[in-house]
């Protein structure tokens, strides 16, 4: 048995029938295969509709695939679903605890469902739970967003799972809270836990050991964050001018441009080949009467790579 894997999947397919008559079914998962090693933080990165939630629901035995198979901790997702449920912790994208039970009651409930106690596994959740312990008697429905998230994570961990599955835990969360959440995950990994996490935020790739970039049910790329970026082979430049919106339009009509998109304070200009240098880009922008020019060769990031892969797909 190949037991170094926490999760492995072979040719998973999931289709959803559309309500409208005559419309073909939506292919939510398009022949996905992958393997996730034990103790990894593995990130599925992709926008809404990429298939992240369908995939997670299949791996957590809440949804059946139309085709393909998968194993979680060596167990089959169809035949051994009950055993899998004992060894995984799952936090869905929507808050799924009992709103009318208190913080303490929710935690006790989840511990007793799994025939264990809060005391027995407290060491695992201590750092997280201590932050919400002062509100132990508050109903879960009355907690703030950040506190709900911490309670959800505590409840998902209380039976000491081998695999933690987190569906978009940081969506709609501000930049500061997102950084804190990732710190918590890194601490949890030290206990040997495997963590599967999905996110629409490309900048969170750097926090994962390996990532899969997903779009429309397909995995566009799967590697370490550095490995993914190394697939990007075209020259890329950061451009600034005094009029950024005009510059975007002008750079797109430059004959040597492969693509150009806004990237924070500069535009990222991807050229077709190495033949065009900074001088040529300068001259072109000056001919379009741009001022305050800055043209700089840069290294691509994960978001550049994702966008390039998307353009290839379409």
């Amino acid at each position: 048995m190949a037991t170094q894997y926490s999760v492995s999947a072979q040719n998973l397919v999931k289709r959803y029938q559309q309500e409208e008559k005559g419309k073909p079914p939506v292919l939510a998962l398009d022949n996905l295969s992958f393997a996730i090693e034990k103790g990894e933080i593995f990130g599925f990165l992709g926008p809404d509709g990429a298939g992240k939630t369908s995939l997670f629901r299949i791996l957590t035995t809440l949804l059946l695939p139309d085709e393909g198979t998968a194993q979680v901790e060596g167990l089959d997702i169809v035949n051994d679903f009950a055993k899998i449920r004992e060894s995984i912790g799952y936090m869905p994208g929507k808050f799924a605890l009992y709103q009318d039970l208190t913080v303490g009651e929710n935690l006790n409930l989840f511990a007793s469902i799994f025939k264990t106690s809060v005391e027995k596994n407290y060491d695992l959740i201590k750092d997280i739970y201590e932050q919400i312990a002062p509100f132990k008697k508050r109903r879960a429905g009355k907690l703030s967003g950040g506190m709900k998230q911490k309670l959800g994570l505590s409840c998902a961990l209380i039976h000491r799972p081998k695999l933690l599955v987190l569906d978009e835990p940081t969506t709609g969360v501000d930049a500061v809270s997102r950084k804190e959440f990732w710190e918590m995950l890194k601490k949890l990994r030290e206990s040997g836990l495997t963590i599967l996490v999905s996110t629409p935020y490309m900048d969170e790739a750097a926090q994962c050991d390996r990532v899969a970039l997903m779009q429309e049910g397909k995995i566009l790329s799967m590697d370490t964050p550095d490995g993914v970026v190394q697939q990007f082979s075209k020259p890329i430049w950061a451009i600034k001018t005094a009029n950024m919106f005009e510059a975007l339009k002008d750079l797109r009509s430059y004959p040597f441009t492969h693509s150009c998109f806004a990237f924070g304070e500069s535009h990222h200009l991807v050229l077709k080949n190495e033949k065009t240098d900074a001088k040529a880009i300068h001259a072109y922008l000056l001919s379009k009467e741009h001022e305050g020019l800055s043209v700089e060769r840069i290294k691509p990031g994960i978001e550049d790579t994702f966008m390039d892969l998307m353009l290839h797909e379409s």
Partner: peptide
């Protein structure tokens, strides 16, 4: 109000072009 949450990186940028 958070018009681009959960949107892919290209669509997100195209949306900002509409804003401009």
């Amino acid at each position: 109000d958070e018009p681009t949450g959960g949107v892919d990186p290209i669509t997100r940028r195209k949306f900002w072009e509409l804003i401009y």
